[in-house]
C-alpha cells in the first residue's frame, strides 16, 4: 500500500540525487503521520546546509508535485540524514519542557516563530501534559505558540 504511494516519490528523489551528482540513496520509514523518505549517504549533507533550506525546498516541490496523489490527510516527509527527525524531536522536548514550566509557575510560555508543521508538533506534544493548553498567536507564516495554564 505505502509502496505504491511512495515509489514514484522515491524515484523522483533518486533522479534529483543523480542530477545533483551526489552519492546517496533513499530509505523509507513508516510513521504515524505518514511515510518518511530519508536521503542517506555522506554527500546528502549538501541538502542540510544553510539550516536545511534545500531540504525544505525539496519538500515543497514534493508537496506540489505529488500532494494530490496521496489519500486523505497523509503527507510524505522528505528528510536527509534524519535532520528533520532530529529537529522534530528537539522541538517536542522543548515544548514539553515549556509546558512543565507553565504548569509549575503559572506563567505563559511562548515558543516560536514557527511554521504550521512545527506548530502542529508543539500542540501535539503539549496535549500530553495535563493542565496546560496551547494557542497559536500572530499572523500568517510567523505565528508563535502560547502555552498557558488551563483555566
Amino acid at each position: 500500500m505505502t509502496n505504491e504511494i511512495t515509489r514514484p516519490i522515491t524515484e523522483f528523489l533518486e533522479r534529483v540525487i543523480t542530477a545533483l551528482g551526489i552519492n546517496a540513496s533513499v530509505s523509507t520509514e513508516e510513521t504515524s503521520d505518514g511515510p518518511r523518505l530519508n536521503v542517506t549517504g555522506d554527500e546528502a549533507e549538501l541538502l542540510v546546509r544553510h539550516r536545511g533550506e534545500p531540504l525544505k525546498a525539496l519538500q515543497h516541490v514534493v508537496d506540489m508535485s505529488f500532494g494530490r496523489t496521496l489519500p486523505d490527510e497523509k503527507r510524505v516527509f522528505v528528510d536527509a540524514l534524519e535532520y528533520r527527525k532530529g529537529k522534530d524531536i528537539e522541538l517536542r522536548q522543548m515544548a514539553k519542557f515549556l509546558a512543565e514550566k507553565a504548569r509549575q509557575s503559572g506563567l505563559d510560555q511562548q515558543l516560536g516563530p514557527l511554521n504550521p508543521y512545527e506548530r502542529r508538533i508543539v500542540h501535539m506534544a503539549v496535549a500530553e501534559v495535563p493542565g496546560v493548553t496551547t494557542e497559536s498567536v500572530g499572523d500568517a507564516f510567523s505565528k508563535t505558540v502560547l502555552i498557558s495554564l488551563r483555566k
Binding site: 534529483v16 542530477a19 545533483l20 551528482g21 551526489i22 549538501l46 541538502l47 546546509r49 533550506e53 534545500p54 525544505k56 525546498a57 525539496l58 515543497h60 516541490v61 506540489m64
Partner: peptide
C-alpha cells in the same frame, strides 16, 4: 503558475535547489 506557485514559493524553492546544485 505551477512552477511559480502561490506567492512565488515554488519559484523560490527552485532557485534554492538550483543554487544548491551550483554550490557543488
Amino acid at each position: 503558475g505551477k512552477v511559480i506557485g502561490k506567492q512565488g514559493r515554488t519559484a523560490a524553492a527552485l532557485r534554492t535547489l538550483a543554487s544548491t546544485a551550483g554550490e557543488r
